[in-house]
Design a protein around this nucleic acid. Structure first.
Lengths: 217, 217
DNA sequence: CGGTTAATTGAACGCATTCAACACGAGTGG
DNA sequence: CCACTCGTGTTGAATGCGTTCAATTAACCG
């Protein structure tokens, strides 16, 4: 998918502790249980968040109950930084997780914290790129390609070897603009072609990188 | 679609001349002919743009030739402000148009210009909201709904009554993640139900606002 | 006017969805 | 330890929405 930073992730590139400290300086920390809501859709956006432990999912529900998942956020990721007055997507704890938070007004007031400013700008950049990629994927890619794309992205986040999927098939489907059945079919198809291998439903390994990459293009 | 500013558009809300002057202070102005490229996909993003006259389209081409249109920008709109190092989408003149440009480095250097800063932040906010809406639309809406959504958005940009469509059916299709044929069918369908009326192919009028709004939801 | 491109319409196809049944895995309690 | 249940995921068959391919019509421009 993106891979703007081939090997060195921007999160690990600079000492994680520096940013952590910057956050601690200005805000608090809170734990959320699996499936707990961190903020609601259309809620006023007064805080800024950073994942410490666990995985967070953003999603939007239409009036008639259709759901679109915005993205998944891993430790080190900032989220909830839409510059608008309120959150268009809700955020929920996908797994039990711990989150740091900063009051937005604090960010503006203590504008001296260059570390924090830089991180927010960088996160905004990343957020926009993800959104743009998402648009292209949903607008112009087949189910097979979308699923391949998703697995690629997941693999890039984690170290090589076994990749853990913290989200359900429903979450994947709602992210990809598909149904769970289609996602499932594509997964078994890719597995049938030995491109990926699923020892269990929430865990996989890429067997043919080039083949998967070609699909995800 | 969005309608964050029910009646008063942010572009017209503050005197347009003030921002225009802010841009003139720091940058230049350039004219582009219909279909001319303003910047290329994956080109380094060193400038920031603002439409003065005409309409601009952003789009991204995949390796195998599929195209996704990002958005359409009207007079007053800022574009090309992805915070990344380079443009993920290309920008082209949809019609003959005139554009103001500012060097990004200038924006950072002369960070004193509050007028400009505010405009950029506001434009970034709007850009993200559009992207988010776009994702929901492409991920979870039917062809009929997408087309209705599009017509709604176009109508909101212009004064009531006749609405002019500066883009081709192909542009619409590539924005909506559909084919021209499907777009055409949906348009004739909506016209058949007297929800909209097309006196000519590039010009329409909404007949049943509530019906269209219900579809665009 | 022709000549060219853009848009509409029709018919057949195919991909993803829908609806339904089945399999698997994790907990729970006998 | 096994039986039972419940949630989650997979598989199958039928349907339908949007696409594809092809033909026709409309708009644009010399």
């Amino acid at each position: 998918m993106t891979l703007a930073y081939p090997m060195s992730d921007p999160r690990t590139a600079r000492p994680a502790t520096a940013l952590t400290q910057a956050f601690e300086r200005h805000g608090g920390r809170q734990a959320f249980a699996r499936d707990e809501e961190i903020y609601a859709q259309d809620q006023e956006a007064e805080l800024l968040y950073r994942v410490v432990r666990g995985v967070v999912r953003t999603s939007r529900l239409t009036v008639d109950g259709r759901r679109q998942v915005g993205d998944f956020y891993y430790p080190g990721d900032l989220f909830g930084l839409e510059p608008g007055p309120d959150h268009r997507f809700a955020a929920e704890a996908l797994t039990d997780c711990e989150v740091q938070l900063v009051r937005r007004s604090a960010v503006r007031a203590f504008a001296g914290d260059a570390e924090l400013d830089r991180a927010i700008l960088e996160a905004t950049r990343q957020e926009m790129e993800r959104l743009q990629d998402h648009v292209v994927m949903l607008g112009r890619k087949s189910a097979r390609e979308r699923v391949a794309c998703f697995l690629m992205a997941m693999a890039e986040r984690q170290a090589d070897g076994q990749v853990e999927l913290p989200m359900s098939r429903q979450d994947m489907a709602d992210y990809l603009g598909l149904t769970i059945e289609t996602v499932s079919r594509m997964l078994t198809q890719l597995q049938g072609e030995s491109i990926v291998e699923f020892p269990s439903t929430r865990r996989f390994q890429i067997r043919k990188w080039t083949a998967l990459e070609a699909l995800a293009a």
